[in-house]
Design a protein around this nucleic acid. Structure first.
Lengths: 253, 253
DNA sequence: TTTTCATTCTGATCCAGATCAATGATTGGC
DNA sequence: GCCAATCATTGATCTGGATCAGAATGAAAA
């Protein structure tokens, strides 16, 4: 018991990282008391960086943790009946991966690094325990999952109803919003995924993605240099996407 | 304390409905102690039936409850930028609607009855409170939300990668599975939604849905009479869908 | 009953985006 | 550095499913 206490003190002084982590306000955006942050901190394991192409977990493996991205980018994907990969999401720093594994105790998708990526591993059973003791943590977890559900539903609208231009514009604006939230430029950023991966995610062929991007560049909506993107005419890109981007807030019928 | 005990006993005899409800094992499939079931029971309001076309809630309204369908069917949908409706889900008895509202405190979709429908209203704040006291209830909530996330991701695969035949076959098998789980026939059932609604949900035109169904009938995969469906050649329909229907379980790459 | 309106089905035509093909541009390995 | 492999772009062609048009069926209203 003394050992445990010593260790706990040790953790809070030397290795407590959530408090100093610039993402803490985002990955589980909770106003926790210092003591609570430490408790959360102690269940989190910082893992060694993944290299590009490394798996974080694979479809079918036993679920035991969710992961917060600290740096880099991940993609999650399914393998379809025809053996193709279907990308179901990209994950940027501060975002949580692996939530879909809770139900079946098995990860229903694989997660792979698109570039050098570091994550915090959060053993789910311990997070759940802790959430019983810290109601605001439990509430945040519900919110994060609920958010994921409504985001995925927006994605269903995109896949089911939008044309190629609208899909690509939505994708760019979505990334822009996510970069902005983390304090980066909303207009200039780097795509960590290939054109092929964008197309796969949006339900388009690579060639179509390439053509749409080229066309956007020619009509001076954006400026492109390889993977570097600059959104030049923000309002026009928003117009392409339509009000649907903040669909949750518009008037109902 | 005696009062509370009396009241609890009173409820369990006269108004406790979760215990006698045939769906209780499904809507929140938990092995709860009797006393816990009563506590759950007391926060649930049974509402008067919705008629066909009635809204349960509208996109943009303040979120305060999730709903368990008791009988009938609901659809949830978004309004896109072009003013069209995009259906994001159909809800059968025992299924929970409204979970996507937790994050923003606003329902991001509308929910409308496809036929006469009854629901149990579960005020979310009280459910959350109760979940602090009953860990297995909290765990079930996480599971239900996680399940929704992985189901929606399967839907993204369907919308992004499948052709018309595969979409319709997946849809029919999905319904079949859900009917079976509730103890109804997996091969013979009634579609509560129109062809138009099916097409909207699957990202297809009405005409395409109609043609595919007719074609399936001609090749003796199914038998159709209006809204009545009988799956005749189950294995063949499964073959059409591909292994992807239980994608979560197949080998990883 | 008849009228009206929605739903379903079927055929004919069209087009957005897939597919095929070829050529540059980048990137990583040694 | 060079070479191989992957990635991106552009053009030409093809096609699955959308769209248009109409007829047939069904279901609610009067």
């Amino acid at each position: 018991m003394t050992t445990s206490h010593t260790q706990s003190r040790f953790n809070s002084t030397l290795t407590s990282q959530c408090q100093s982590c610039s993402l803490s306000a985002l990955c589980l955006p909770i106003a926790l008391a210092d003591e609570d942050i430490n408790r959360l901190d102690q269940i989190i394991e910082r893992k060694k960086p993944l290299k590009k192409g490394d798996f974080l977990f694979r479809q079918g493996e036993t679920f035991d943790s969710v992961f917060a991205v600290r740096s880099g980018t991940l993609k999650t994907f399914n393998i379809t009946s025809h053996g193709e990969e279907q990308i179901t999401g990209f994950y940027c720093p501060s975002e949580l991966v692996g939530l879909s594994g809770i139900d079946s105790n098995i990860y229903p998708v694989s997660a792979k690094a698109l570039e050098t990526t570091t994550v915090c591993e959060i053993p789910f059973s311990r997070l759940e325990e802790l959430s019983s003791q810290i109601p605001s943590l439990k509430h945040q977890l519900f919110k994060v999952m609920s958010r994921k559900i409504s985001d995925d539903q927006q994605m269903m609208v995109l896949l089911g109803k939008k044309n190629a231009d609208e899909k690509v514009a939505s994708f760019l604006l979505n990334l822009s919003t996510r970069f902005k939230k983390r304090g980066y430029s909303a207009t200039t950023f780097r795509l960590s995924m290939s054109r092929g991966e964008i197309g796969n995610y949006l339900g388009l062929a690579v060639e179509t993605v390439s053509r749409v991007i080229t066309r956007f560049q020619k009509s001076e909506l954006i400026h492109v240099d390889g993977k570097e993107i600059e959104i030049i005419d923000f309002p026009e890109v928003q117009k392409l996407v339509g009000v649907a981007s903040d669909c949750g807030k518009i008037a109902n019928i």
